[in-house]
């Protein structure tokens, strides 16, 4: 499987480390126990299109949000997470 890192380009999957479900947002630290419980433990396990978080550990170390089909491994989109994303979007717009 190849993942298209926005910083480095298309790279082999073994350069990346899976970081978990990318469709969830971390609640504020002072959110209540129920919200944190849902965030830490509750997952759907879709057979098909899914949003994941990957870290480019064997490359530029960017944190990436990847939309991928868990059955066919087809990748639909890769975008940066974090502050890099804003800078990337700014430069892409130019």
């Amino acid at each position: 499987m190849r993942i298209g890192c926005p910083v480095c380009g298309d790279r082999d999957a073994h350069e990346f480390t899976y970081q978990g479900d990318g469709s969830r947002t971390t609640p504020p630290l002072d959110a209540d126990q129920d919200q944190w419980f849902a965030h830490v433990y509750e997952r759907t396990n879709p057979m098909g299109r899914h949003t994941e978080c990957w870290l480019h550990t064997g490359g530029c170390r960017a944190v990436l949000i990847v939309e991928r089909d868990t059955v066919t491994h087809e990748i639909f989109s890769v975008r940066l997470a974090g502050a890099q994303a804003a800078i990337h979007d700014e430069e892409a717009g130019q």
Partner: peptide, 10 residues
């Protein structure tokens, strides 16, 4: 400038 790994080493 290519950031990658060789022999599992970044």
């Amino acid at each position: 400038a290519v950031q990658t790994s060789m022999h599992h080493i970044p």
